[in-house]
């Protein structure tokens, strides 16, 4: 780990000032400290934001929820409003990391977390994300965990977050505070596909602070849930995952929100699947037909040729679980 200066801030103005001077925010530290120890991250100054008043989950006027950036993963998962309104969020969180990590890690830090690509974490390997222009060791290397959708010639790494898949499905938005004031980004614009600049992962400007993630209101009753497929049952990132929310009334699906994890360079929203479901009656045949084109456009790599089919099956299974047919 390289030496760094440490400063604690107690209000957002102080934080923004330190951020503008190049200070790096630290929330739970579970991504940042780990990567600093690997010398992948080398901040000169850490700005401890854990004292900022961004720790609440509040209901919005329009019937949605606002989750403060410093709400911990365990706090969000246990929150009664989250559990009753959006079980898909609490399920995604409870299937993430470990109880210890969830007590430290925050919602803001979670959506800012960096890829778990092993070559990214190994400073001796070629990696365009860590060192632009150096190449991509994963392309010809071990790429079982890597992405099949949204990849570029320069990078094929997945975004590792589980709860981000739920946020993408529910069309959440991210509230940001910068030197020029506040702005709000749709979740789909917040996380960036690699393209030719895999080193940029989020549409966040230098010194900008995430203040909250907002979940929009959805018609009720809403049933939702998260399914995670992985090589072992704990401490493991998703091979594939599915976040599904369905609003059924009068026996017909009126609203469908579906996204997949573990397959894309960003959480992968599945609009074609959603459109197939809306206006139809839940049935076994419907789930199977809806996922037929879920992996369209996939570009599998040498060690993950199983992923397109696993993706379809994961989504189909979760549609069945949430949609209520056996």
């Amino acid at each position: 780990m390289y030496p760094f200066a440490y400063t604690r801030v107690s209000d957002t103005r102080e934080a923004l000032n330190a951020g503008r001077r190049g200070g790096r925010y630290i929330a739970g530290g579970t991504t940042l400290v780990d990567l600093m120890r690997e010398t992948v991250e080398r901040p000169e100054t850490l700005v401890d934001i854990s004292g900022l008043p961004l720790r609440e989950v509040t209901a919005t006027e329009r019937g949605g929820l606002r989750i403060g950036a410093l709400v911990t993963m365990s706090q969000a998962a246990a929150d009664r409003k989250v559990r009753s309104l959006y079980p898909v969020i609490s399920e995604a969180l409870e299937l993430s990391a470990s109880a210890q990590l969830r007590n430290m890690a925050t919602i803001g830090g979670n959506i800012m977390q960096r890829t778990r690509c092993t070559y990214f974490r190994d400073v001796t390997a070629a990696c365009n994300k860590r060192e632009p222009g150096s190449g991509c060791a994963a392309r010809e290397g071990f790429n079982r965990m890597h992405a099949i959708l949204g990849t570029s010639d320069d990078c094929v790494a997945t975004h590792p977050s589980d709860v981000a898949v739920a946020f993408a499905a529910l069309e959440a938005s991210v509230h940001l505070l910068g030197p020029d004031g506040e702005r709000t980004l749709p979740f789909a614009d917040f996380l960036l596909r690699p393209g030719s600049t895999p080193n940029r992962e989020q549409a966040v400007q230098r010194g900008e602070l995430i203040t909250a993630v907002e979940i929009p209101a959805l018609p009720r009753p809403l049933r939702s849930g998260y399914l995670k497929v992985r090589d072992r049952q704990s401490y493991e990132f998703a091979l594939t995952s599915a976040a599904v929310a369905l609003h059924v009334s009068g026996g017909v699906i009126r609203e469908a929100k579906v996204a997949a994890g573990g397959v894309g360079t960003v959480p992968w929203k599945l609009p074609a699947v959603e459109q197939h479901l809306v206006g139809e009656r839940p049935s076994e045949a419907l789930w199977a037909a809806a996922v037929a084109r879920a992996a369209e456009g996939a570009r599998p790599l040498r060690h993950n040729r199983f992923k397109p089919e696993l993706l379809q099956r994961t989504v189909e299974r979760q549609l069945r679980i949430v949609g209520g047919t056996k």
Partner: peptide, 11 residues
């Protein structure tokens, strides 16, 4: 409960 290895003492 937390992971002491990822906790900076200075915090």
């Amino acid at each position: 409960r937390v992971n002491a290895c990822l906790t900076l003492a200075v915090r």
